[in-house]
Simulated scan of single mutants.
Amino acid sequence: MTDSDPVIAQVERWLQDVVVGLNLCPFARKPLRARQIRFVVSEATSDEVLREELLDEFQLLDRTSAAEVETSLLILPTHLRDFHDYNFFLTEAELLLKREGYEGIYQIASFHPHYQFANTEPDDAENLTNRAPYPILHLLREESLERGLENYADPDSIPHNNILRVEALTEEQKRLLFPYLFL
């Protein structure tokens, strides 16, 4: 894992320009600036290998302080490129989290180039809030998330505000912020 890795560079740019730049996650700026985000490029080509990598990341977070690694992004450049397969794997990931006793300790947020919320059309702007250059499993520390939410005036407004932000983007802005969607 180095900054010269093109996969990591693309994900970092997405974090800076989209997640932080559009303020889709009001809690992302601080760990990004402090370099407390761990970027891991998965080598998985099967769900079994990915489950092992996911467990390794949970265990690494166990051994590492939040001051050193606040959150981890497990990036999947070659596996689960189909959103339905990815979505199916999320169920397995949640079961792993529970089975290993990490429920209430960690949380998994999901991002995918073809992310689609239930009851939306593929081209609905709100899907952009969870679209990333690659499938990503974002591992969050529950304690940090709770602390951030306590200090945020109206956390329930975040999803709605995010939808308004991405709906307000022009086609040109979408092409600049999400070039991987227009290949």
Rank of each mutant, 00 (worst) to 15 (best):
R29H: 13
Y106D: 05
L140H: 12
G101V: 04
E172M: 03
P159N: 05
L177H: 05
I105T: 15
G21Q: 01
T91V: 12
L54G: 00
L74K: 00
G104N: 10
F182T: 03
H79C: 03
Q16W: 02
N151A: 15
I8P: 08
M1F: 10
Q116K: 07
L60W: 08
S157H: 14
L183D: 09
D156Y: 14
F58K: 00
E92S: 03
R175I: 04
R147A: 15
L183N: 09
D5A: 02
E57W: 00
I158H: 14
N151S: 14
C25T: 05
T45A: 06
I8T: 12
G101W: 03
A118N: 09
N87Q: 14
E48S: 10
P113M: 11
K174H: 06
L128M: 08
A34Y: 07
F117Q: 07
V40P: 02
T78P: 01
E143L: 12
T78C: 02
A125I: 02
E52M: 01
F182S: 02
R81V: 08
R131W: 09
E126D: 12
V20G: 06
L50G: 02
Y152A: 10
S4F: 06
H160G: 14
F117T: 11
F89Q: 04
I75R: 07
A67W: 13
L176K: 10
P26H: 15
Q107N: 10
S110R: 08
A168Y: 01
V41F: 10
F88G: 03
R33P: 04
P113E: 09
E167P: 07
A34D: 13
L181C: 07
R131M: 13
S144D: 13
D56P: 01
E53Y: 00
I75S: 05
R29P: 06
L74H: 02
P31E: 11
H79R: 14
L50A: 00
L73Y: 03
A168I: 02
F39G: 00
D17I: 00
D62C: 02
L177C: 05
N23Y: 11
R147Y: 13
Q10D: 14
E53M: 00
D17Y: 03
L24F: 14
L90C: 12
D56E: 14
E57I: 01
V20L: 05
L149D: 05
H160Y: 15
E43Y: 08
N162I: 12
L183Y: 06
V7M: 08
D123I: 07
H138T: 03
E57V: 00
P179Y: 07
N161F: 13
D5V: 04
L22A: 09
S65T: 15
T2M: 10
T2G: 05
L60T: 10
L22F: 10
E142W: 12
L15P: 05
S72I: 12
P133D: 02
V19Q: 13
M1H: 13
P155A: 08
Y152V: 14
L54P: 01
L15C: 12
Q36P: 13
D123G: 06
E68C: 08
D17T: 01
R81A: 09
V11Q: 03
Q59I: 12
L169V: 06
D123K: 08
S4T: 14
E53D: 00
